[in-house]
Amino acid sequence: MLPVLDDEVVRHRIAKRIALDLEDQAVVNLGIGIPTLVSDYLPSDRQMILQTENGVVGAGPIPDKPDLRYIGAGGRALSLIPGSSIVASDFSFGLIRGGHLDATVLGTLEVDEEGSLANWWIPGKLVPGMGGAMDLVTGAKNVYVATTHLDKKGRPKLVRKCTLPLTGVGVVTTIVTEFCVVRRKEEKMVLCEIAPEVSVEEVVANTGMTLVIPSKPETMLGI
């Protein structure tokens, strides 16, 4: 059994770990939910250039006085950092598809050992649409999946093969959960780091995908 951690601890732990992975001046698109928190944890000696699907390059935090003419992809007002620019949607997705983003961080419903993820639709439920997610996972140089290790029913979200409609095939480069960091290396999923309160055996027992286990996985950074 994996320990049960407080929801907020989980969310912030995942966000912080991903933030530590991003290099100075990285151009990054953050999805809604846990990914939004990543920008709060960037080390002070690094700057991240946040891109939003609706055209901002260089988005800043929510301003004190929101101006609804400047919003992020989730609809929240944003500020512009000095040096930012705004483009139309064709250009924004040109940047995304064209490989000009260093990273995109998204949540998921499932992610599998082939590096595919499913995060846009549960058949039988109302179909929300894929929005920009398919373009982001196709074009960004690094695709970070930020997810709880288990779903609400206690089932692994890291699965052998996704059963839900895919967002992208073989695109995921790194998975960060509250208990581990998994990186895709040479088409295999490698358990690189684990949280201090769990054992390798506990992580493996709660993971559907086949993991390559190094002789000694590192302790998860940032905890």
């Binding site: 699907e53 949607s89 997705f93 995304i96 598809r97 894929m130 398919m134 373009d135 196709t138 074009g139």
Partner: peptide, 24 residues
Amino acid sequence: PQGTFVERIRCGGFGLGGFLSPTG
């Protein structure tokens, strides 16, 4: 997909017969 959506409109407006996308 959103990038495909806007590029299809761009093609419509700019006289192109379509485009090839890796998305999806």
